[in-house]
Amino acid sequence: MANLNLTSENIKRISGVDARKCMRCGKCTASCPNFEDMEYHPHQFVYFIENGKLDKLLESKSVFKCLSCFACVERCPRQVEPAKLIEAVRLTVIRQQGANHLLPDEIPAAIDEEMPQQALVAAFRKFTK
């Protein structure tokens, strides 16, 4: 993962988000419905990216735990848009060869009769390249 060129600048370019606007209020983390499942929480994504400490985020499963529900984006008083930062990190990870988080082989076991197509399309969009 060393060759990823995952710099804060890259994340800024992909996400369009300036992490330096953060005032460290933690409202994103307070709002996150998936807090429990994340090793690193939205405010940590913002802070780590702001400080160029990206290795930990990159290696963490937390990038695959964001629901993209935009609660953090909606409520952030500073318009930092943490979900966009998380998405940028996740994309940087899965854009590598062989880094897909969801494989077609896993699908038959994961679905049932009722599950809408939308769920599969969305999951593939978020977790694979």
Partner: peptide, 12 residues
């Protein structure tokens, strides 16, 4: 298909 989810990345 609309794609199911919106991708927030600028370069997508």
């Amino acid at each position: 298909c609309c794609g199911g989810v919106y991708t927030t990345a600028q370069d997508e």
